Computed example of a mutant assay.
Amino acid sequence: MATIYESKTTEIKPFTYRTLLITPDENSEFSIKHSRQQPKHTKKVVLLNLVGRTSTDDIDSYESLEQANLFPLAHHIDNDKQEYEQYSKGLVQHFLFLIELQRLWKSEYDELIDLPRSSRGKFSFRKSDKDTHQYREAQIKALLEPIDPSQAIARTTATEYIGVVVKFYSFQIRNGYKFNKTPFEYEVVSIQYQGDSTSIGAYLGKDVHIKDLRLNLGKSRGNEGGALSSSHKNLNPITNREWQAVRNIPTNTSQVIKNVAG
């Protein structure tokens, strides 16, 4: 009986982190204590799990994705950030995509002639076959050519989801996680520049992290469903027709109606 996998989140709220210290006592035995440093409080921590279900919807397996969950913990504890909602949505979408890739591969796999698919955390040698780049292409297709227009995603959402994936794998790279091949082209360029009058040194340095995983879409200029089809996001003086439409909202209708994808 085939197991159906899905990514699910677990919320812990509120969440308090206290630094643990391992110290020897007078008998040279180690004990664990909490540091006297101020604990870190956050409203909510969202953790990611891989859940397997049977065809009758019973839970067959439940696995906490440790590498994925180190990311939100560092976001809250190390970076002292509170909000994580958008990051959580982006990671869930990415892992749902990875699960679907695995399902499609299994449906077409022939153990006599095909090589086994790389396990989680391993990437293809070809750029176009990397899971990360396939995910980017899927986001572009969902944005520009959605199967169901009513479920089309916004440009900002696609950009944020790709940004989360970049931050997630960049976090793993910085923390020494070893991939067989990098998730995307990643390079750190050190730039030296002259310091100003407030700097101690004559020259300062800065590391710039360069990745090739981005959407590369032109800026959207349309108003996406608004009544004024000639409206654009760039700053131009509005026409008399546009002004009358804007003025009609507070004086008459008190509402704005947009028609997006039907």
Rank of each mutant, 00 (worst) to 15 (best):
L73A: 08
S254F: 08
A152Y: 01
S88H: 03
I191E: 15
L91R: 08
E187M: 11
H34D: 08
S124D: 15
Q134P: 07
I12E: 09
V260Y: 03
G226W: 03
Q192H: 10
K167G: 15
R155H: 11
N234A: 10
L115N: 11
H209F: 15
K178P: 09
Y62A: 00
G52W: 01
K43S: 15
R53P: 07
K40S: 06
F184V: 03
T10Q: 14
Q244A: 08
F123S: 01
I153Q: 03
N259G: 04
K211Y: 11
N248S: 11
A227E: 12
F30S: 11
K141L: 14
P24C: 01
S190K: 15
K258G: 04
I257F: 05
G218C: 02
Y203T: 15
K181F: 10
L217Q: 13
T3N: 09
Y62L: 12
E160K: 09
D212T: 00
Q192S: 14
E26G: 05
V164A: 03
K33W: 04
D57I: 02
K44R: 13
F184N: 02
Y87S: 09
S35P: 11
R174V: 06
A142N: 14
R120F: 09
L48R: 06
I59R: 12
V188Q: 11
H133A: 00
A2E: 13
V260R: 09
L20C: 08
I200S: 11
Q255A: 08
P39Y: 01
Y17I: 01
P149V: 00
R174H: 14
M1F: 06
S31F: 09
T56H: 08
Y109A: 02
Q192I: 13
L112K: 11
T9N: 12
E63N: 13
L115Y: 08
S199W: 05
K122M: 09
K13F: 12
H76R: 03
L48F: 14
D57Q: 10
L112V: 05
Y177S: 04
L235Q: 10
T253V: 05
T251D: 06
D196F: 01
S119K: 12
K130V: 02
F71R: 01
T156W: 06
F125M: 09
W105T: 08
F179R: 07
M1Q: 10
A142W: 05
R155V: 03
K43W: 06
S197T: 11
